[in-house]
């Protein structure tokens, strides 16, 4: 039996402030499983932890608790050089590859896969004028067809952002209030109160019209 593509096992990240009495300033929890290839749209307000979540999934930011299993392997126990053979984090136009190297690479395991099976796109720059959107969406579909798991994180500020999410998103992930909540469909996302609050009245109306 092949392991699920991605498991976030009681994953928790806490940032604290204060030297003696530690007060948490940020928490993010996720307990999710993505068994097979699909395109997941990720939304959430700034500072809710979308990027932190992506960093934990790609192995560049160690979780406080829990594990990230990519194709059955704990990505935080894989050699730094080979983590991009499991998952890649694209921030806008560039790949993010910075690891805090606490454990020597020699003590870590090898990647079970030769090529990445997780592609996380963090706010790719979309511009309706140049036509690249079409090529980017086709690329996401191509990865999906090759059996990869694709996350696309967007911060909807215009109608076409919602159109993009609706067009390619097979399921969604709402990162809000310290939790990553899965949503099975676009219409299910639109009825969620937290999502509506985050989108604001104009965008909510647009989203409802699309759904």
């Amino acid at each position: 039996m092949t392991p699920p593509l991605l498991v976030l096992e009681r994953l928790k990240k806490v940032y604290t402030r204060g030297a003696l009495v530690k007060r948490p300033t940020f928490t993010l929890e996720a307990d999710l499983e993505f068994p097979e290839s699909r395109i997941v749209g990720v939304l959430g307000p700034n500072g809710a932890g979308k990027t932190t979540l992506f960093e934990m999934i790609t192995g560049s930011n160690a979780p406080t608790e829990g594990r990230v299993l990519v194709a059955g392997a704990d990505i935080h126990r894989v050699k730094y050089k080979e983590r991009d053979r499991l998952a890649i984090h694209y921030h806008q136009s560039y790949q993010v590859r910075s690891f805090s190297k606490r454990v020597p690479s020699a003590l870590l395991a090898r990647s079970p896969t030769p090529k990445p099976i997780l592609h996380l796109f963090d706010e790719p720059q979309f511009n309706t004028q140049d036509g690249y959107i079409g090529f980017m969406l086709d690329f996401f579909r191509k990865l999906r067809a090759e059996g990869k798991l694709v996350f696309v994180c967007l911060h909807p500020t215009a109608r076409y952002h919602l159109e993009i999410l609706k067009e390619i998103g097979e399921s969604f992930l709402l990162v809000h209030g310290g939790k990553a909540v899965p949503k099975a469909s676009f219409s299910e996302l639109v009825v969620d109160e937290r999502a509506r609050g985050y989108l604001g009245p104009d965008m909510t109306a647009t989203a409802e019209a699309l759904a």
């Binding site: 036509g131 959107i133 079409g134 090529f135 086709d138």
Partner: peptide, 10 residues
């Protein structure tokens, strides 16, 4: 591509 049609390129 539909998005290309919508753009300047289209």
């Amino acid at each position: 591509n539909a998005w290309v049609q919508r753009s300047n390129l289209g």
